[in-house]
Write a protein that binds this DNA or RNA. Structure first.
Length: 397
DNA sequence: TGGGGTTAT
DNA sequence: ATAACCC
């Protein structure tokens, strides 16, 4: 721990991830938000030196699959979502398979490729939080980025260790830092900078701050310009529990209300189980759609509304009573967005629970507790959990 | 291009 | 509610 700044978690040797300087312009955009570049990359003047570990798991989904089925370990393995290979193991990479490759192309490159379906993220999500929890044992200050990256602020821990060392041992300690080779697609920002004639990190370093602030807004401008000098003082913000839960499904075509309702019920059933296990209660629901269009970059639309309090009460009790009112709410949101009297063509549906609030047990007295039947009689685990087709209201007390 | 997430406006 | 960003 005294030396390296970037331990690989699990996953074996990676491609050299530490290409230092100069950064490509596109990387700056990514870094601006990802905070992939921290203050360790260059000797900076103003940053108190911190020790921040970036744990970036490679081909995470593939590794989860190999753990749950060791027979896959020595085979080229891809994780498939719809017709995409979203990630793959090293065996597959050796044979030419890339992330986000078409299943067709991947099979063509590598006919022996074994594919597992990774559309259900449940196990990946669970493993992801196990990793975060493990890191939180070192320091509670862990920031998640996606399912497979974590930033850990170890400054305090390191300072404590250093204090314990004798002075002769201390002189032997060296600390070195890295720059991360971030992927491209801070897409919009990069396009903006390009339009301003900024094509390299040096261009960005020397560009007028005032003009940049006018073009990009003061916040983004100052951030990326600092980044261009290798300064990133942004704190590691502990992520804590998630702010939202969502489930989505994409498809070629959904063009009837009944179809949509069925999909929504499916998404909802999974979500209710997740909410149940979390323990907190969402106070807002959102429905998101994507309409078929020849090509519009990121055309999603959404409608949201507060969840009525009587529905919130029943949430998380493993009780089917919530299914019907929630579907009703979601279908109202649906009809608010989609004129069902006209032909329509959707390619994605997503349901999101957000505005999560802790259930305040202190505020809720014992009497209240016992007067809410669902609270003391049912739970979300085991046989009461949601199944779609074959359970009816009568099954529950 | 999937199936998620976050923050800012 | 949307848009941008991240993986």
């Amino acid at each position: 721990m005294e030396k390296g700044v970037e331990p690989e978690e699990e996953g074996g040797g990676d491609e050299g991830d530490t290409e230092a300087w100069p950064m490509e312009l596109a990387d700056v955009g990514a870094a601006a938000s990802s905070q992939g570049v921290r203050d360790q990359m260059l000797p900076t003047r103003n940053s108190s030196s911190r020790v921040i570990v970036h744990v970036d798991l490679d081909c995470f989904y593939a590794q989860v699959e190999m753990i749950s089925n060791p027979e896959l370990k020595d085979k080229p393995l891809g994780v498939q979502q719809k017709y995409l290979v979203v990630t793959c193991n090293y065996e597959a990479r050796k044979l030419g398979v890339k992330k986000l490759m078409n299943v067709r192309d991947a099979k063509e490159k590598c006919p022996q490729l074994v594919l597992v379906n990774g559309e259900d993220l449940t196990r990946y999500r669970e493993m992801s939080y196990k990793v975060t929890e493990l890191l939180e044992e070192f320091s509670p200050v862990v920031e998640r980025l996606g399912f497979d990256e974590n930033f850990v602020d170890l400054t305090e821990m390191v300072e404590k260790r250093l204090q314990q060392l004798q002075s002769d041992e201390l002189s032997a300690v060296t600390v070195s830092g890295h720059v991360y080779n971030n992927q491209c697609i801070g897409y919009k920002t990069a396009k903006c900078l390009e339009a301003l004639g900024i094509n390299s990190v040096h261009d960005l370093q020397t560009f007028s701050s005032k003009i940049l602030e006018k073009e990009l807004g003061i916040s983004l401008a100052q951030r990326i310009q600092k980044l261009s000098f290798g300064e990133d003082n942004s704190p590691v913000i502990p992520s804590g529990p998630p702010q939202s839960f969502s489930e989505e499904d994409s498809f070629k075509k959904c063009s009837s209300e009944v179809e949509a309702k069925n999909k929504i019920e499916e998404l909802l059933a999974s979500l209710l189980n997740r909410v149940c296990q979390d323990g907190r209660k969402p106070h807002t629901v959102r429905l998101i759609i994507r309409r078929y269009t020849s090509e519009k970059h990121c055309g999603r639309e959404s409608r949201q509304c507060p969840i009525p309090s009587h529905v919130i009460q029943k949430l998380g009790t493993g009780n089917y009573d919530v299914m019907t009112p929630m579907v009703d709410i979601l279908m109202k949101l649906f009809r608010n967005m989609v004129n069902v009297k006209m032909p329509f063509h959707l390619t994605l549906l997503s349901v999101c629970f957000c505005n999560l609030k802790a259930v305040n047990t202190a505020k809720r007295g014992l009497i209240d507790y016992y007067l809410t039947p669902s609270l003391s009689t049912t739970s979300c685990s085991g046989k009461h959990s949601f199944k779609m087709k074959d359970t009816h209201m009568e099954d529950f007390p």
